[in-house]
Design a binder for these strands. Structure first.
Lengths: 332, 332
DNA sequence: GTGAAAGCGCTAACAG
DNA sequence: CTGTTAGCGCTTTCAC
């Protein structure tokens, strides 16, 4: 029955101004509960539905930021996303999450997002953005911040994975361990980044520079998943010359070491020490010694960089890289 | 260089009026071929896309589902959200996350979301939706699914928290423990749900029915946060008649028990046993005995229910409740 | 907490 | 054929 109604109809019927009606739609918190109720009642009565294109027209910006992340449930991603969501929740921006599961999907998003008007800014986590895609964002003056990726012309929060591996090696050596192992994820999907390799390189090189060896039998690149971690570790620990310390390229994999040790009746760190990477919450709970990469702070900072960019287009490109640091707990 | 351009930009660059530009878009026949060509060239140069168009197109290929969750970083929420994101990522739906930090914010969202045209469906997690708000969704035929909440006329995934408490008590009794404790979050914000209380009631009642007692000194409702958990547990464990088993109303709090025990040099489960609730990933990693509430599956199911509802408006209301089950590991 | 008024990008008369 | 101008329905300062 109801014909197309507008906020004007609603406003006059409710005895308020269109402003107030508009506010009920956009920031209901600012409207007195009483007025709000009244307005909503009228809306129901009229079956009022705002016209999307009118909104588009009137709106300068959409107050939405997108986040593009690998489709992964790895806690380090989750925690990073969480910190972004947290930082955003005190602003009036909506958060749109795009999780990408294939290379095609990635480039699809990347090419349409800046044009689609769907979001006002984008945070990309640990996904490789190609040169021409970056160019596209630049042409559209589209605010973008990258985490765990580096490009000269885009603001980013970077991680020096090589230095992380180095740090792990140095720490382990300084604690007096003599033989070493490594586990990490191998065969990561091509559309995500190979942080693991760099951590490994830093680790191995530093070890060698200090006259230590990393025997092949103590190194394992395995598939993502707790079971794989545990299996790999067991294999390493059953070897004749088992290492006395392992660098796990993520905390989750460090947990794998601990699980394996528990199942083999080995004590951590006495029989086998382990240092992780990330410093996720879990590491604290479990007392895992690890390398902190400021997961929580990075999200916060990324949001700040982005907001800054959205506010002022003459954004200076900033590259922030947090100091990696060893957090000593019980596992090594 | 190109900013988001409008017909105004095109017009001035092409040296014509906006009307002419508009006509090129709508009735090209009326525009002189020369001007038309010129205008089209400029459009290309500017990568001009009519804004309303962009919106329309956006609305076409993409649908959005919103998720309304307490502003909390509790792992059980995070894990639930993660599973929803996962389920959604194989569809062409965008995920918009609204995290609510106050009661006002909640009712604000709830009252505007169904009418604002911003999303096509909503999943509400562990937030109390009032009767008239539900009514509102119904009137607008707006697809909605609730998790951890129950209402006769809305599809939902429910948790029988009372039964969970009962289960914990029964399990502990069956394992031969004789004295009992409880920790949980107290003073939860009023806008979220009191699952803890119900778990406690189920626990306490069952204990009593079996002739066991739960002394006040072994019960603690504390603020959210690891430190609070640890402190509370320490207090309980220092008491003269310390319990030999504790039901922690979430896995995170079970971790608190374990940390406290470690710091007091008590062995788990020998000196103090603990059973948690949720079965988050962490519980597996740490070997915590707990009560599984199908966190991962619930998100998947919620999404299915929602999609089903969006497809077919004659949705039958479904109430799904997963069987709670004890997952026995090492802590109790 | 609320309203007046000035846009937003675009379309549609209405002249010329 | 083309420009001027008045809206369209909604958002957003900026006052009160």
């Amino acid at each position: 029955m109801a014909k197309k109604s507008t906020i004007y109809d609603v406003a006059s019927l409710a005895g308020v101004s269109i402003t107030t009606v508009s506010r009920v739609l956009n920031s209901p918190g600012q409207v007195a509960a009483a007025s709000r109720k009244k307005i909503i009642d009228v809306m129901k009565e009229l079956s009022f539905i705002p016209k999307a294109d009118a909104i588009a027209r009137a709106r300068k910006d959409f107050k939405r930021v997108g986040i593009l992340t690998p489709f992964s449930t790895a806690p380090s991603f989750v925690q990073r996303i969480r910190s972004i969501a947290g930082a955003l929740s005190v602003t009036d921006f909506e958060l749109i999450t795009y999780s990408v599961a294939s290379e095609d999907q990635l480039s699809g998003y990347l090419s349409m997002l800046p044009i689609s008007n769907r979001i006002d800014g984008l945070i990309v986590i640990a996904l490789p953005v190609k040169e021409d895609e970056i160019e596209l964002f630049r042409e559209y003056d589209f605010p973008i911040v990258m985490i765990e990726i580096s490009h000269p012309s885009v603001s980013s929060i970077e991680i020096d994975n090589y230095a992380g591996g180095k740090l792990a090696a140095e720490y382990l050596i300084s604690k007096g361990y003599k033989s070493f192992g490594f586990i990490g994820e191998g065969g990561q999907p091509a559309y995500s980044l190979h942080a693991t390799d760099m951590r490994f390189n830093g680790y191995k090189t530093t070890l060698e520079q200090n006259g230590m060896v990393l025997s092949d039998s103590s190194v394992s690149f395995h598939k993502y998943g707790m079971e794989y971690s545990v299996d790999s570790v067991k294999k390493i620990l059953m070897d004749d010359n088992k290492p006395d310390a392992i660098f796990a390229s993520s905390d989750l994999q460090a947990v794998g070491v601990i699980k394996a040790a528990r199942e083999m009746n080995l004590k951590v760190p006495e029989d086998i020490a382990v240092i992780g990477f990330d410093d996720i919450d879990l590491a604290d709970y479990m007392g895992i010694t690890t390398i902190n990469q400021s997961l929580d702070q990075s999200g916060q900072t990324a949001v700040e960089l982005l907001l800054e960019q959205m506010k002022d287009n003459s954004h200076a490109v900033k590259h922030i890289s947090y100091q990696l640091k060893v957090i000593e707990r019980y596992s090594a």
